[in-house]
Design a protein around this nucleic acid. Sequence first.
DNA 1: TGCGCGATTCTC
DNA 2: AGAATCGCGCAT
Length: 175
Amino acid sequence: MILAHSFFARSAPKVARDLLGKMLTRRLPDGTRIAAPITETEAYDGFDDRASHAHRAKTTRNAVMFGPPGYTYLYLCYGIHWMLNVTTREEGYPAAVLVRATAVVSGPGRLTRYFMLTGEQNALPLRPASGIWIEPKSKDPVRPGSVRATPRVGVDYAGPEWRAKPWRFVWTPDA
DNA sequence: TGCGCGATTCTC
DNA sequence: AGAATCGCGCAT
C-alpha cells in the first residue's frame, strides 16, 4: 500500500497535516531499505503564498511544483542542504509540502542526508520504482491532540499575513 | 555578467 | 553569535 495520486491532489496544508505518521520509505541502489514515520511538515500553497518558491513565477528550479501531485521536489538550500518536498494539488497549480523531520531525524537538511536524497531524486513520482515513496500505516498512529500547528520556519521575509499562517505541523508521538 | 540572500546546521 | 557554501533570481 502506498500513498498515491488522490492523497496528494489536495491543498498543501491538508496534505501536510495528513502526512504526519505516514512512513517515508526509501530503497537505495544497493537494495538497502530505510523507513521512518514523518513527524514534521510545512505547506507552501499557491501563487499568492509569499513564502513559496512559486510566488513569483515558474522557473527551472520550481517547475516541479507546477506539475502533477505526488512528485518529489528537491532543491539545495544555503549551498549545503537538500530539502525534500512532495508536490500537491492539480497540475498547473504550484503547491508542495516540505518534509522537515521523521521520528529518527530532526531537521530538513539532516533528513535528506539520512535518506540519501539529492537533486538526483528531483521530479520523481513517489512510488517503489523511483526508490522513494510514502506508505500509510495499517492503523493511523496520530492522535488529533498530539498535533500542533505553528507558523513556518525561516520565512520572516514573507510579510505579516503569510509569515503568520499556521502551516507547519508537528506531531509528538505518544511515549 | 554580477551580486545578495536563503524553506539550515554546526561550532564557538 | 557566526561561519560554511553555492545556485537562484533579479538587477545591471
